[in-house]
Structures are given as structure tokens and as C-alpha cells.
Write a protein that binds this DNA or RNA. Sequence first.
DNA 1: CCCTTTTGCCTAATTTAGTTAGGCATAATA
DNA 2: TATTATGCCTAACTAAATTAGGCAAAAGGG
Lengths: 109, 109
Amino acid sequence: MSFRDQIRKGSTETLLLMLLRDEPMYGYQISQELARRSDGYFETKEGLLYPTLHRMQKEGLINSEWRQPDGSRRRKYYTLTRLGREQLKEQKEEWQLFMTQLQKLLETN
Amino acid sequence: MSFRDQIRKGSTETLLLMLLRDEPMYGYQISQELARRSDGYFETKEGLLYPTLHRMQKEGLINSEWRQPDGSRRRKYYTLTRLGREQLKEQKEEWQLFMTQLQKLLETN
DNA sequence: CCCTTTTGCCTAATTTAGTTAGGCATAATA
DNA sequence: TATTATGCCTAACTAAATTAGGCAAAAGGG
């Protein structure tokens, strides 16, 4: 595992909540969007993405729904729940605090 | 594990390198200093601190040396190696990049 | 028309940072 | 003298993340 991977630990759930904030998305779309919006910096491997989505649904942060547009293939769309929205807010604040504290220490050196 | 703990994952090694940059320190001192400098935000549990120091020494990032000031008790002091210094520099840059990318995504939402 | 690539969802096995929960010993202090 | 703080350590467990696949439908190139 690269140091970059090591650093990103702990950010997965927040990233997923962020992406789902504005519109429902399906798994494959999430991974594409995440890479696109971060210029390739954030990549979620599928072996992490899907289990995480399932866990988050079990925890009530998101809901899922299969959709099958005519002629197209079926996709499982995830939507933020109210609890998920609250969590996103809290997690964003926690990340801000973390970054502030880390920045403080980084600067002293 | 709290969300705060989850977030801090991946930061341990960088924090230790940072603390050791200016002067050699021993384990107990490291944990105290880390908490002090971050107003209690960063806390390293001993069960993580010591194994991490050992691993870092094995990887050549730090050296250790027992010191026994007269009348006082023995302490194991850790010093940054040249490799450790290089790593610190790289890791700081990686953290800056991570924070930039995360901030970018956080702001769009 | 076939064949490869992309899309799309999933799981099992393994790794490893981190937590929990201790042990053990010396120095300081109440 | 008994308790607290200092100081180092390890073993067992948890859980996020990686690795390495499987399976199927749609798209696109030759």
C-alpha cells in the first residue's frame, strides 16, 4: 500500500456521502465521478466501494433502489437518507478540525 | 472506534516524524508532546505508539539509543535518520495534496 | 458476425493500522 | 507505606483497505 493510500484511509465514507448529496448515483458512476472530480486523485477500488455502500445502507446512511431504463441495463441507485445528510455535516466538520490540527503541526516544523 | 479515530488513521507515522525532527525524544515524551502541541486532539495509544516506533526503526526511518541520566531512569531516545528526514518531507507534501483535494470536494458540496 | 473492451455488481481471502487490555518496573508523592 | 505517574512493552482482536478474482450485459471495432 502506497503512502497515498495510507493517507486516504478513513476518507471513503465521507467521500461517498459527499457525492450522493446532490443526486442519487450508482456504484460504477460513483467511482467514475470521484476520480473525475478529483482529477484522478481519489480512486475507489471496487473491493472497497461495494462493501462500503452495503455497510452504509445497513447503518441507515443511504437507501438503494434498482432502476432499469428501457433497453438499458439495470443499475442500483443509492440515495442519501436524512441520517446520511446529518452524518455528512458532522463528518465535514470533523475533517476541518483534523486538517486544522494537522496543518498547525506541519507548520511548526 | 470513533469517527475522529477513523479520520486520524494514516497520520501516525507522519506525526512521529514531525515530532522527532528537531530533537531526539523517547516514547512517553512523544505521546505527551503530541497531545500538548495539538491541545489534546492527537493522542497516541501506547499499543500503537511503541509498535510503530519499532517498525519505523526497522524501516530505517529512526534510530534508537538508551540513555540513563545519573540517578534518573533509563529512557529510549529516538532520532531521525537521513531517510526519515526525506520521508518527512515527502509525507508533508502528500498531506498537503490530500488536503487540497479533499477541500476541493468538500467545498463543492 | 465475432471478439475485445467497457460497463456494472459482487464476494472471499489477506493485510495491516489501530484499539483494547493487559504486564512489569522504577521514581515521585501523598 | 501506598498510590500515582512515569516508562517500555506485547498479545489478541477489530475493521478498513487491498488483492484478486467471478459473472453478465452492452458497446464498439475488425
